[in-house]
Design a protein around this nucleic acid. Structure first.
Lengths: 221, 221
DNA sequence: CTATTCCTCCAAAGATCTTTGGAGGAGTCA
DNA sequence: TGACTCCTCCAAAGATCTTTGGAGGAATAG
């Protein structure tokens, strides 16, 4: 058999199992944005700390996450971009293969039936950034912006967007992005801006894909 | 949250769970080579028919496999190349992230400590095929060759290799391949030929990767 | 040193999966 | 039609996971 006995499939299944729980996937989704403490994850995902800790041990046993201690806190992060890439591959398969997922996603993201307009690819955004003629808005929580963002982007968490409308009215080209192709924040941002008469584009995916495709990432405030 | 509530993670976890069992991974591994009947899978993986059937239902519920009925048999196949790609991504992550997997694989494949020699990439093999100056040997079972192989390759299942040594002695460049990067047959073939004084290259991965990277595939005998 | 915070380990109850015989459905062949 | 093959569905026992309080370890501040 190609990989066959000798426990190789068992070892492999450890990785599969790690991705086989909704709660753990939610944690991976959060970690794909940057490192977080156990408590931070528990708060963000609305789970008990012990539950989060237990799930993190499973991920750690599969070598999918790594830790760093700072004072009394322990920061967890994905073990590498290949892990984020695997998560992304799973999202893609689930979406292509399951009308349920596709429907749930579109309903959740608020995508109109006719499909979406005003998208920009990572490549086009890269060119736009080089020309220096774009206002790129990172609408994720500031915590995630600090953990890594597109160089040149400005942190403007979605809840603060409404207070910055006047500033944005003059901008030439506005591009919003958030966590990944399935993150609702950038969708909401484009709708909010549109409602105010401000045209904005949306990066067709987000930080997850930006990372896994090897684009440059800037860390810090 | 980026994908958040609304059951999206639950839907996703269905896919993850499907990949979270050693037995199911073994079935996926077999199906990545081509379609098979339930009984065929049971024989190849040495599992009970009911067990295989139960696992196939899980894969089917996750929309990872599709079926085709022919007479009294039911043929199962992967639902698409993206599924094979996901499996491949899992193998890669498991291998990079876990010394256990890497060790188990190398021990199983019989890779010498100093690493391997005599590899050829898919790209180089494509060029070699165009020049028409290569003897490409598909050492998988004939059943899998029929379900799909590299155009121009010759089916020479590993057990029959020893009977064809004389024919091969005259060949200019010999390339062997089997199921994927972690398939032992091509490794064994190169070693067997080398022991007989016949130099042979090994495709660095195999049929799985050949498919997922969009190379042409020939079906039938 | 003590109190505090943040996290992990332990243990047990409850939930979910896996495996297996046996019954039964679907197609084929004579 | 009846006998046969291949497969799925059902049900139950056994195995494995998940969730949770509570105990305890590790770092820190005073």
């Amino acid at each position: 058999m190609s990989v066959s006995k000798h426990g190789v499939f068992d070892e492999l299944a450890v990785v599969g199992k790690a991705f086989g729980s909704a709660k753990r996937l939610e944690l991976v989704d959060l970690l794909a944005q940057g490192e977080r403490t156990v408590e931070g994850l528990a708060r963000a995902a609305e789970m008990g700390v012990t539950t989060v800790s237990a799930h993190l041990q499973v991920l750690k046993l599969a070598n999918l996450v790594q830790t760093r201690r700072q004072g009394t806190r322990i920061y967890y992060r994905l073990a590498g971009d290949d892990v984020a890439a695997l998560y992304e591959a799973m999202l893609t398969v689930a979406r292509t293969r399951s009308a349920d997922v596709e429907r749930a996603l579109n309903a959740y993201l608020g995508v109109p039936d006719g499909g979406e307009v005003g998208l920009i690819t990572r490549e086009d955004l890269t060119r736009l950034l080089e020309s220096g003629d774009a206002e790129v808005l990172d609408v994720r929580p500031r915590e995630e912006y600090d953990a890594g963002h597109i160089p040149g982007a400005r942190s403007l968490p979605f809840p603060e967007l409404a207070t910055a409308l006047d500033e944005l009215r003059g901008a030439s080209t506005i591009v919003t992005y958030c966590r990944g192709a399935y993150c609702v924040l950038a969708h909401d941002a484009v709708r909010l801006l549109g409602g105010e008469g401000i045209d904005a584009l949306r990066l067709e995916d987000g930080m997850l894909e930006w990372r896994t495709h090897g684009h440059p990432v800037e860390v810090g405030a």
